[in-house]
């Protein structure tokens, strides 16, 4: 589905990603873990097309297309979804209008007709249930005045409506209490299929109890320094990041 080869990216003069290699196939869940400052958010930002970063080397192929050439909106239309670590509040833009515009632009890109108002409302109703999102929230402005947990649930709700091929969850667990975490994780699990894939970016192992990954990668200092199965996350949790830092300090 997505192949990342030798990806280097910087902000200004500072190189943050120093050669990322990663392949994710349909039906897989990958977790990327790493200490603060290792480049986790930069990776998600670069993949979504955030302009703050300069890609200096490497390539990203998504379903056979050169992904780095595409605008952020075209990446979304191709089937990428980034669940933001800090979802943006947009006063005055209603959640419903926003989602309908997004869905219809994605459909137009794929040569599909606009969704009817009736079908859209039915879709919204169905998808709200997945993350137990209060119907009142969908009528409000995008994320405005939402609690931390509501914002994260709203991200997964959007994901449910837009049905991406690849979802990147950027620290979706941060700021969530255990109940909200369970709801969000259940939502993600319900949306999982053999045709889509998920990349879970997280600092903590906690979320991976609920969203069980097929592969775990440790990102440190802009590189994936270790990959393994779900047991790697547990190992990391037990030993802490200091062990990793010690082990890889010399090599990077």
């Amino acid at each position: 589905m997505i192949t990342i080869k030798n990806l280097h990216a910087s902000i200004g003069d500072k190189e943050i990603l120093k050669g990322i290699n990663l392949t994710v196939k349909a039906g897989e869940v990958h977790a990327i873990m790493g200490p603060n400052g290792s480049g986790k958010s930069t990776l998600s930002g670069v993949l979504a097309g955030k302009e703050d970063y300069d890609v200096t080397e490497g390539e990203v192929t998504f379903n056979g297309k050169d992904f780095l050439e595409l605008s952020p909106e075209d990446r979304a239309r191709e089937g990428l979804f980034l669940a933001f670590q800090y979802p943006v509040e947009i006063p005055g833009v209603s959640n419903i209008n926003f989602l309908k515009t997004a869905l219809n632009e994605i459909r137009a890109y794929r040569g599909q007709e606009e969704i009817s108002a009736k079908d859209f409302l039915a879709l919204i109703k169905e998808k709200q249930k997945i993350v137990e999102l209060d119907a009142k929230l969908t009528n409000r402005s995008v994320n405005e005045g939402f609690s931390g947990g509501e914002k994260k649930r709203n991200e997964i709700f959007q994901m449910a409506v837009l049905e991406p091929k690849l979802a990147i969850l950027d620290e979706t667990d941060s700021g969530l209490d255990i109940d909200a975490l369970r709801i969000v994780a259940n939502g993600v699990n319900k949306l999982k299929s053999k045709d889509n894939a998920t990349i879970v970016i997280t600092h903590y192992q906690r979320l991976l109890d609920y969203i069980v990954p097929d592969f775990v990668h440790i990102l440190y200092n802009g590189k994936i320094v270790k990959s393994g199965g779900k047991e790697l996350a547990l190992e990391l949790e037990a030993k802490g990041y200091d062990e990793i830092k010690k082990q890889f300090e010399e090599t990077v």
Binding site: R75, A76, V93, E105, Y109
Partner: peptide, 19 residues
């Protein structure tokens, strides 16, 4: 906000218009 809207598939022109 503009990037957030675009990241959901909304094109530049429509995203600006919404904002």
């Amino acid at each position: 906000a503009l990037f957030y809207l675009k990241s959901r598939g909304i094109g530049d022109e429509n995203a600006r218009k919404l904002l």
